[in-house]
Design a protein around this nucleic acid. Sequence first.
DNA 1: GCTAGGGTAATGGCATGGTG
DNA 2: CACCATGCCATTACCCTAGC
Length: 241
Amino acid sequence: MRHHNHHQHAHSRWHNHRALAGRFSLHSLWHAIGRHHHRRGGGASGAGPFGGGPFGGGPGGFGGEGDGFPRGRKFTSDDLQLMLLALLAEQPSHGYELIRALDARSNGFYSPSPGMVYPALTYLEEVGQVTVEVEGNRKRYALSEAGREQLTANRERVDLIFAKLTHIARKMDSVRRAFAGEEPADVSEGGWVPELIEARRALKRALLLRTDAPADEQRRIAAILARATAEIEGKTSTASV
DNA sequence: GCTAGGGTAATGGCATGGTG
DNA sequence: CACCATGCCATTACCCTAGC
């Protein structure tokens, strides 16, 4: 009800480590401002679904062919917020419940840590997209009107994210089975038929070989891909494999 | 002018503490 | 005893500066 005793215990521990830490207080940032916006000054790569992923310009070269399992960052906090909104739209719940929901939905692939979720919820509350109802010392979050609008505005994005989650979940499952030695890799790509997998691989290869293509050539390719995308979205029924 | 290295900032996860 | 919330620490990526 009215138990407000955070930040009491923190001092002792923080004091200890503080000596060797050349850093300064980042912690106050979270609940003070809510959340740090903008990644960095001129950050080039950033807002993708898999976001400023683990592989950027640093060590490790280019790793993810888009698939493979990024062990580090999975989703941007932007995307996380959208997912939270979507979940809350279905049913108001506590922060912990949301974590578990995400975890379940992705077959354990994506279980955002508390340190990520709670600040996100706090932020959403601050911008008025969710409302908080304190029940004892738990907080029940619910979607607000503004949140509903935000969700509607980004419906497409949300669907994409969840689709990706489902896709990964299936893949996860098949990998698990592979480890168990049950089935080889019949559906290793998450339920895609071999023809599709092969086609996608061929496409990647073709693109890689043209990594140095001049601008005109790149535009031509872009047009082709755009056309393909349109066609895919246009007639989802008959697979032209 | 280009490449390499170092430094700074941000994100994600883990650990601790508290309450029902 | 189990579950939830908060805070701190560690790791990773990006940008800037120095040297060749």
